[in-house]
């Protein structure tokens, strides 16, 4: 079972349906027990960082996600990816699973939010993200992550500036765009993710082969 962590904000249906269309068994949940029972956790999210950060700090949700990220794949989407980091200029503390911060973009006169389809150029050796290949994905955001470690950068995108559009460290991965709304490219990425989950779920010690994992 893949758990979609429910922070109580934003629309989780599109992520659920996209995974279900690929044959995955999915549960939308905020229960620590259900999250502990999942083969993998998807952390979606739209909206304000601060509101989401508050939800994370209430109850066990944040602690459970931090704990599970040690042993099962955790995939953050959009705001969910930003929440993997330490803090945001938008206000609030993230999960701190990846060192770095989230800042408002400065796309030199281009409209914000960055809205629409844009190119994702993946880096080598970033697991399922690399396996999906470079492609075009749907973005809608005004903030971008600044990983402290270059090794955690899994993809970049150009929008008035070159920003980090995907990250990866061990089990923890994130994308700034919306694979669930990125047509065939998004389907390919989610299918690659499910394949990695299936492979890792057979292992008592999930993959640490990624370049950032040994030094993290």
């Amino acid at each position: 079972m893949i758990a979609i962590a429910d922070l109580g904000i934003g629309n989780l249906s599109s992520v659920r349906w996209a995974l279900e269309r690929l044959g995955a068994q999915v549960e939308v949940t905020s229960s620590p027990a259900a999250l502990r029972g999942a083969q993998a956790i998807v952390l979606p999210g739209v909206g304000h960082f601060e509101a989401a950060a508050q939800r994370l700090s209430q109850g066990d949700l944040g602690a459970t996600l931090r704990e599970r990220a040690q042993s099962v794949p955790l995939f953050g989407i959009c705001l969910g990816m930003q929440l993997l980091f330490e803090r945001s200029e938008e206000g609030g503390e993230g999960l701190g699973l990846l060192p770095g911060t989230v800042r408002r973009m400065a796309p030199r006169g281009l409209p914000l939010p960055h809205t629409g389809w844009n190119s994702v150029e993946v880096e080598p050796n970033a697991g399922f993200l690399t396996a999906s290949g470079s492609g075009e994905a749907y973005f809608v955001h005004s903030y971008a992550v600044e990983p402290a470690q270059r090794a955690h950068v899994a993809a970049r995108t150009e929008y008035g500036e070159r920003f980090v559009s995907a990250v990866r460290s061990g089990h923890v991965a994130g994308v700034q765009f919306h694979p669930e709304r990125s047509g065939a490219y998004g389907r390919r990425m989610l299918a690659s993710f499910l394949e990695e989950v299936a492979v890792c779920s057979k292992s008592s010690r999930p993959s640490t082969s990624w370049k950032g994992a040994s030094s993290a």
């Binding site: 904000i9 934003g10 629309n11 739209v46 909206g47 304000h48 705001l79 939010p113 809205t115 809608v140 955001h141 005004s142």
Partner: peptide, 8 residues
């Protein structure tokens, strides 16, 4: 916008 985000 406050509840669902400006992007929505």
């Amino acid at each position: 916008a406050q509840r669902f985000g400006s992007q929505a």
